[in-house]
Design a binder for these strands. Structure first.
Lengths: 221, 221
DNA sequence: TACCGGCCTCAACCGCTGGTCGAGGGTTGA
DNA sequence: TCAACCCTCGACCAGCGGTTGAGGCCGGTA
């Protein structure tokens, strides 16, 4: 298991990222975003970690439009054990010292310091109404632990608000909650109820599965 | 009270955004991001709402690195989002600054060249056994359309293979299929059964919701 | 042994985004 | 009437994110 060659890596990534090429992967190395090992003769050898890194880069680029320079900083922050700070949407910068790490796929890893928001902070960070939040809580989509909320609650609330603008209301979203619960249940059947090394890995896998399934079932263009 | 001239607008914005210029404001109009009124003689007149819009654009650009194209879509969504939303967030007609402006479009968009694989190609690309694939097909996780498979099938098969190494077998994954089906069903209730502009946007949103929910329910580290 | 596909480097090139600049000319108000 | 302000339009530009091609080295295989 000495890692994969660049061609193999290309195959693996192309399923998920249509526009990846060999030259792009090489370019990303030249920019310092990945640092694959080399064989004696100079061939690149990508470890599983290198692959994750590439996935991270490509996802951040595609889904968040981040410039490589910024992605590189995030990777550096992650390497140093921090969580990449990312600005939320245009909102008064009054409270809330730091917004949560963006919902980058595969970022289920060691979270470092988990965000803890009061209800007011959450309302402001997500820019949603108190009514909407109450409704989301009523359907179990957002849950406070103690009297505070985690960073994911921001994402849930923001997305729910956007979906509401399409006419999709919180009560239509209950199925998402049960699906997520079942998914986590499945993971815990493997890892047990405590968080382990594998927890994040498995979550990344199941979410990837979910995403691919949804995409595959969407009407074709 | 009839609005401000471009020079005045420049003064107001420069306090907050160091790099704004007159030519940039004009450029943003040319790109369709603002549409100030005009005087009889052709001078631009910016209303308060136009100013908010500019602030939104400049903030999104500076803090989220969003490309103008995407910001424009967000603005369009906000404009349209005022309509249905029973439980939607209180985005009043001209009070833009509070918005759920998170990155919207994931790569559920126009795929361009959709991958079409034969069964053998799929087996090779995903590096899985014919038995596993057959099992996945049996449970409806991978579906051939005609006699070929899409690129997502590679991801599904790869992930399923990895999950199998944790003891999670295809039959445990049926729930993912039904969840995905329901999710797509929900989207199609909004967009209709044909693929539209919104299809990809909605899919990106629901997948983001799913991901955030799973993460929020994972055991805390 | 020769061959061929895969991989290497390096430099030149490219298209798109996000503007800037200047010429030439009208408008406003003191 | 003059200065300050504003207009359009077309040319130009810098940086980002790669692509392309020339020239050459590996490594399996026939």
């Amino acid at each position: 298991m000495g890692g994969r060659g660049i061609g193999e890596v290309l195959q693996l990534l192309q399923a998920e990222f249509a526009d990846v090429t060999i030259s792009k992967i090489r370019f990303l190395e030249a920019e310092g975003l990945v640092t694959p090992a080399r064989t004696a003769s100079g061939y690149r050898k990508f470890s599983a970690a290198d692959l994750e890194r590439l996935r991270y880069v490509l996802t951040a680029q595609r889904d968040q439009y981040l410039p490589l320079k910024v992605i590189k900083e995030h990777l550096g922050a992650i390497d140093r054990g921090l969580r990449p700070a990312a600005a939320g949407p245009p909102v008064a910068p009054s409270s809330l010292p730091q917004t949560p790490g963006q919902p980058v796929a595969e970022d289920f890893g060691a979270a470092g310091t988990e965000l803890r928001l009061t209800r007011d902070e959450l309302l402001r960070a997500a820019a949603v109404s108190s009514e909407l939040l109450a409704e989301l809580e009523g359907h179990g989509l957002v849950v406070a632990s103690g009297n505070h909320y985690g960073g994911d609650a921001i994402v849930v609330a923001q997305v729910a608000a956007e979906l509401a603008s399409y006419g999709i209301e919180p009560r239509h979203l209950r199925a998402f909650r049960t699906a997520a619960d079942r998914e986590v249940g499945l993971i815990e059947q493997v890892t047990g109820p405590r968080r382990t090394e594998q927890t994040g890995e498995l979550a990344a896998l199941t979410v990837r599965l979910h995403t691919a399934l949804v995409r595959s079932r969407l009407p074709r263009p």
